[in-house]
Amino acid sequence: MNQTPIGIRVRTVAVSAVLALVTALAGGATAQAQQAVEPAGVPTAQVPPFEHACVFEGVNLNEFLGVTQRLIGPPPCREAFVGEQWVRTFPSWGTAPSAQGTVYPAGYTPARPAPMDDFISKFRGVRIVNDIGTRQERSFTFGPEVVRRITLDSETGILFASFATPPLHPLSAGGHTTTVFMQLSAEHCDGLGTNPDENCLPGGEFQYTGVTPVRFFPRNTA
């Protein structure tokens, strides 16, 4: 199995506005990074705005996912204030829209005819690990409720399951990391191709994103 976190692998399907949006939610650091890197200095412009809507490529992800708290995920949305609850979002998973015309790797048989139904039937949830590999490491497990929307992309004809966790506890001031592990009851393939590394997710728990750097800032009360 390819060692790159599954959620940031290059897919072989056409890229549309929706696909660009959901794939960009992956963490930007590689799986080998195990600790947050403290920058030498933080420009004022990087301090998160008090208006906490996460806007990426013109799309308000808070509205798209139905989230009122600050979102952490895509590159423009990786800062928050100390004391502020936050919600982790991460790459959507895309499948063929129906059983018609699906293709699978040799030997794979889906549990449900429609690939998205197959994914949802096997999806058990996610484990969010903050500060992985450090003394401050903490894990939070959530179930199928993290699936917030299932959307059909009219340009590619692909169904996307988009994710957002319940609110997470604030982190202390400074640099941190957050990593997403997904849990499936059995192997799932998307019906879009025959390459297991690009078109399938393994059963059990597996790392779904890279180790994403985030930063929490103290509020200026002056």
Rank of each mutant, 00 (worst) to 15 (best):
K122H: 08
Y108H: 01
V15S: 09
P48H: 03
P97A: 15
A20F: 05
I128S: 00
L19E: 15
A24K: 05
N2E: 13
I150P: 10
G7C: 12
A20Q: 13
P115R: 02
G157N: 06
V37L: 12
V47L: 07
Q100T: 13
R11W: 10
L65H: 01
T156W: 07
T141E: 15
R138Q: 10
T178G: 05
E137T: 14
G73N: 10
R11V: 14
V15H: 06
V22W: 10
G125Q: 03
A33D: 01
V211R: 07
H188L: 00
L152E: 09
A80F: 11
N195L: 08
F216C: 05
P74C: 03
L152T: 02
S154M: 07
D153N: 04
L168D: 08
V129A: 11
Y108P: 09
D197C: 00
I72A: 07
G7I: 09
T156A: 03
R124D: 14
Q34P: 00
A111Y: 00
A14V: 09
P76S: 02
V146D: 02
S121N: 13
F50N: 11
V180P: 13
A186P: 03
Y108N: 00
G83A: 04
A106S: 14
F56V: 12
P91L: 10
T95G: 06
Y208E: 12
V103I: 14
G73H: 09
V211T: 15
A53G: 12
G193W: 07
R127K: 10
G210N: 08
G41H: 15
V42C: 02
G94T: 08
V214M: 09
Q46W: 11
S98I: 10
G101H: 10
G41V: 15
S121E: 03
R127Y: 05
A17D: 12
